[in-house]
């Protein structure tokens, strides 16, 4: 059992999507617990890629591709988890989107992928997301974190608008707000009343983990 999980971890590290799918299938047929397959195989691979990335030995496309490979494995495991009434233990639930008037999504997509790869449940609302939609989704899905992105200087204030709307709706204390995007800085984030600022994908993950710890304290 150890062998196949190690192989699976390596397949993620190698960004080999097909191999990940095959090995996940094989692991299932060997009756290995799906949660173990994720934890000891897929997630282990991602952790290793993350470490190599931090050391500058692999690059962003490797990281993103590895995350895609991991997702491919998980999508095979999900129906089995469901049938066994087992749940993945997510670190937290994140709603993410690019604010209204802005259709730039590359940074948001990188962050979403990295959050997923690091154990968050991510619901991506896409681009040009109106304040109303953010609010209704927060009401509907009760996320731990609302993450917003903007690339245009002119759309940055929209994030503050959403935060104000959360306050008005009495939702603010239930959800942590994280913001990011090229023109955003920690200073601007603080000014608009966000709880965290993700400077890049790795710091976004770090901040999301910190926010979850903060939440647990209450």
């Amino acid at each position: 059992m150890q062998d196949i999980l190690e192989e699976l971890s390596k397949a993620v590290l190698d960004c080999d999507l097909e191999k990940v799918k095959n090995l996940t299938g094989k692991a299932i047929s060997m009756n290995i617990d799906p949660l173990t397959i994720i934890e000891k195989g897929l997630a282990d691979g991602i952790k290793k890629v993350g470490e190599l990335f931090e050391r500058g030995e692999v690059f962003l496309p490797d990281l993103m591709m590895a995350a895609e490979a991991m997702k491919a494995g998980i999508s095979i495991l999900e129906p089995i988890l469901k049938s066994k009434k087992k749940h993945r233990a997510f670190l937290g639930r994140v709603i993410i989107g690019t604010v209204e008037g802005d259709i730039h999504d590359i940074g948001k997509n990188i962050v979403a992928t990295m959050l997923e790869a690091n154990g968050f449940e991510v619901i991506d609302l896409g681009v040009d997301v109106s304040t109303e939609k953010f609010i209704s989704k927060v009401k509907e899905l009760n996320p731990d974190i609302l993450a917003m992105s903007a690339l245009l200087y002119t759309t940055v204030p929209k994030m503050g608008e959403v935060i104000k709307a959360l306050e008005k709706e009495g939702l603010r204390s239930y959800v942590k707000v994280m913001v990011g995007g090229a023109p955003v800085t920690s200073e601007i984030a603080k000014k608009m009343g966000a709880d965290a600022y993700g400077e890049n994908a790795t710091s976004a993950v770090r901040e999301a983990v910190r926010l979850m710890k903060e939440k647990e304290r209450y």
């Binding site: 990335f53 500058g56 690059f59 962003l60 496309p61 940074g107 990188i110 890049n200 994908a201």
Partner: peptide, 8 residues
């Protein structure tokens, strides 16, 4: 280009 170590 994107710098692939920092995504900047």
């Amino acid at each position: 280009i994107m710098d692939m170590r920092t995504a900047n």
